[in-house]
């Protein structure tokens, strides 16, 4: 039998473990929960699947769930977000992890399916989701098994949607009751992010949600910290590692001024950039002006902006060609 995990390089486990040890010192909340509940084992033998960026910090979350008694399987919720040494360190402890940095879309959804598969037809009893991809796969699979082919047979959609549809159709041929079996044992999902929570409320509205869900994003200690102060530090970390560009003196354009946008705008300002904000919500737009930011549609910033950051959770914010700009500048499209 092959190993029940797939990571980039299991020999990175030792390095991963060193960084997990360091991270634990900076994660007092998780460590306190371990101390408080380890004896009681509130998650004893509970099958938990996670679809959440497989980073060093997530490794500390996984080991907390394990310390509370859970049987855990994990995948990332983004093709680029895995830290390979973190994945290796967790796989080395015997927790099945399916994640590596730079997955293809096919591999990504393969990983999600593998993490959802506890063997013998069993799925998870609880899910930790980030963005709602695990929840989506189960719900769409369940719909298909009910004879509703509207999603899998729909035309158009993104490349990624095509990959999901193919996966579901393949699974349906081989195991036509797979997802009904999973849903029978599934007791809930806790969702990490704004976009995933948005999807959940839409499912409730449509009467489609199959399990209770906890909106973790809207705990004050989540969205007013992670989304805001987290992005305030990690946005520039990403831009700097990618480009080494000098931020001071540049014009940053932040699309969306919610929790994430506020953190991004502050970070750019803090390092000496001028900041322009685009918003659709007059309250958030007014907030941006009170912080001293210019507010304008993104088209109006063309020719001025040096660094563009989208933070809206919405689609089609930046397009290859901007109609408004071409109209104003008189250029032909």
């Amino acid at each position: 039998m092959s190993e029940d995990y797939k990571v980039a390089d299991i020999s990175l486990a030792e390095f991963g473990r060193k960084e997990i040890d360091i991270a634990q010192h900076e994660m007092p909340g998780l460590m306190a929960i371990r101390d408080k509940y380890a004896a009681e084992q509130p998650l004893k033998d509970v099958r938990i699947m996670g679809s959440l960026h497989m980073t060093i910090q997530t490794a500390v979350l996984i080991e907390t769930l394990v310390a509370l008694g859970a049987k855990v399987r994990w995948c990332s919720c983004n093709i680029f977000s895995t830290q390979d040494h973190a994945a290796a360190a967790i796989a080395a402890t015997g927790v099945p992890v399916f994640a590596w940095k730079g997955e293809s879309l096919e591999e990504y959804w393969w990983c999600t399916e593998r993490a959802l598969n506890f063997g013998d037809g069993q799925g998870p009893e609880l899910i930790v989701d980030d963005g709602g991809d695990a929840t989506l796969l189960i719900h769409k699979g369940y719909q298909l098994e009910n004879g509703d082919r509207s999603f899998v047979d729909s035309e158009g959609g993104s490349l990624e949607e095509g990959v999901i549809k193919d996966l579901l159709k393949n699974l349906n041929e081989k195991q036509p009751q797979r997802w009904h079996g999973v849903v029978a044992d599934w007791h809930g999902v806790s969702e990490e992010t704004t976009t995933g929570v948005h999807r959940l409320y839409q499912m409730v509205e449509a009467g489609e949600l199959l399990i209770p869900a906890i909106n973790v994003n809207d705990s004050v200690t989540k969205s007013k910290f992670d989304n805001l102060y987290g992005c305030r530090e990690s946005l520039l970390d990403g831009i700097k590692r990618a480009t080494d560009v000098m931020i001071a003196g540049k014009v940053g354009v932040v699309c969306g001024y919610g929790d994430v946008g506020k953190g991004c705008a502050q970070a750019l300002k803090g390092m000496g950039a001028q900041v322009i904000v685009s918003e659709v919500d007059p309250i958030c737009a007014l907030q941006a002006t009170m912080e001293g930011f210019r507010v304008m549609p993104v088209e109006d910033s063309l020719g001025i902006g040096d660094i563009y950051v989208t933070t809206t959770g919405n689609k089609d914010i930046i397009t290859p060609r901007s109609h408004a700009w071409h109209e104003r500048s008189g250029h032909r499209l």
């Binding site: 900076e26 994660m27 977000s81 973790v216 992005c231």
Partner: peptide, 23 residues
């Protein structure tokens, strides 16, 4: 997402808040 694609996501301290909520 650029912070997780080009860097390593948020620092541990802030994620401890998020993940304490998750747990």
């Amino acid at each position: 997402l650029v912070n997780l694609g080009c860097a390593t996501g948020h620092p541990s301290f802030v994620m401890s808040n998020s993940f304490a909520n998750q747990t």
